Simulated scan of single mutants.
Amino acid sequence: MLRKFSFYFNNLALAQKLTILLLVIFVGGITFSGIALANILNYKAQNEITSNALLLLRTLNSVRYYTNNEVTPHLQASLGNEEFSPQTVPAYSSRKVFDALRKDNNSYQDFLYKEAMLKPTNPQDMADSFETEIIQNFRQNKNMQQVSGFRSFQEEKYFYVARPLAINDASCLRCHSTPEVAPKEMIKIYGDQNGIGWKLNEVLGFKLFLYQRMKFCKTLVNL
């Protein structure tokens, strides 16, 4: 086939040859420019989504800090050592705040938030195989503070941003060190295997935002 094309091309007039060459150059240039533009738009969109996700993470970190330092001590004082209220858990507060934010602000409808853990108190926070691999990477690379990329989730492809999650406050170990010292009401709700055995400053999971690929592509178009 290549020989036939070469024979046909060699028998064309000079003007026709130039026309074909210019057409090839034009099509090649358009193709290359399209690929380059798509990559640039893809990079800009990922940066925009990452910036939004990090802003949300900082906001939720503030919620966690407030809950842990202001709300929990007062509630625990009234509850006693044996009783338990989910409002004392920073993860519960951050999830509730994020759910309210998604409900009231259309800009965040396509974001999903999860605190993926290896040994969570709440089973809905259990890390899947993909998330477990990320947690192990965070554990092995102490200096790694963030990862992002694409993953398949609920039959959709999502862009994700993840940051490590560790217990830095010793007071949290009251509920998560051993079943014997944990509030009996918590053990009654979640069992004596969930959220137990945590260690101070150990990476236990990560905070994860997922952004749906379909909406992500629309973001590319709008940039």
Results as ranks from 00 to 15, higher is better:
residue 3 R to I: 15
residue 4 K to A: 15
residue 5 F to A: 10
residue 10 N to A: 13
residue 13 A to H: 10
residue 15 A to H: 08
residue 18 L to Y: 11
residue 22 L to K: 07
residue 24 V to D: 02
residue 24 V to R: 02
residue 30 I to T: 14
residue 32 F to Q: 10
residue 33 S to L: 15
residue 42 N to W: 07
residue 44 K to Q: 15
residue 49 I to L: 03
residue 51 S to W: 11
residue 55 L to N: 15
residue 60 L to P: 01
residue 66 Y to L: 05
residue 69 N to Q: 07
residue 71 V to C: 01
residue 73 P to F: 06
residue 79 L to T: 05
residue 80 G to A: 06
residue 83 E to K: 14
residue 85 S to T: 09
residue 87 Q to T: 07
residue 89 V to R: 01
residue 97 V to D: 07
residue 100 A to W: 10
residue 102 R to F: 04
residue 111 F to E: 00
residue 112 L to Y: 06
residue 116 A to N: 04
residue 117 M to G: 02
residue 121 T to W: 00
residue 122 N to T: 03
residue 127 A to Y: 02
residue 128 D to H: 03
residue 130 F to Y: 12
residue 134 I to H: 00
residue 139 R to M: 04
residue 139 R to C: 03
residue 142 K to W: 05
residue 143 N to K: 11
residue 144 M to I: 09
residue 146 Q to P: 00
residue 146 Q to D: 01
residue 149 G to K: 04
residue 149 G to I: 09
residue 150 F to H: 11
residue 151 R to Y: 10
residue 159 F to H: 01
residue 164 P to L: 05
residue 165 L to P: 06
residue 166 A to M: 15
residue 168 N to G: 14
residue 169 D to V: 09
residue 173 L to V: 09
residue 174 R to D: 12
residue 176 H to Q: 09
residue 180 E to Q: 14
residue 181 V to I: 14
residue 191 G to L: 07
residue 193 Q to R: 13
residue 198 W to R: 04
residue 199 K to W: 15
residue 200 L to C: 11
residue 206 F to I: 08
residue 209 F to M: 08
residue 210 L to W: 10
residue 210 L to V: 12
residue 212 Q to R: 06
residue 217 C to L: 07
residue 219 T to W: 06
residue 219 T to G: 08
residue 220 L to T: 05
residue 220 L to Q: 08
residue 221 V to I: 14
residue 222 N to F: 10
residue 223 L to Y: 13
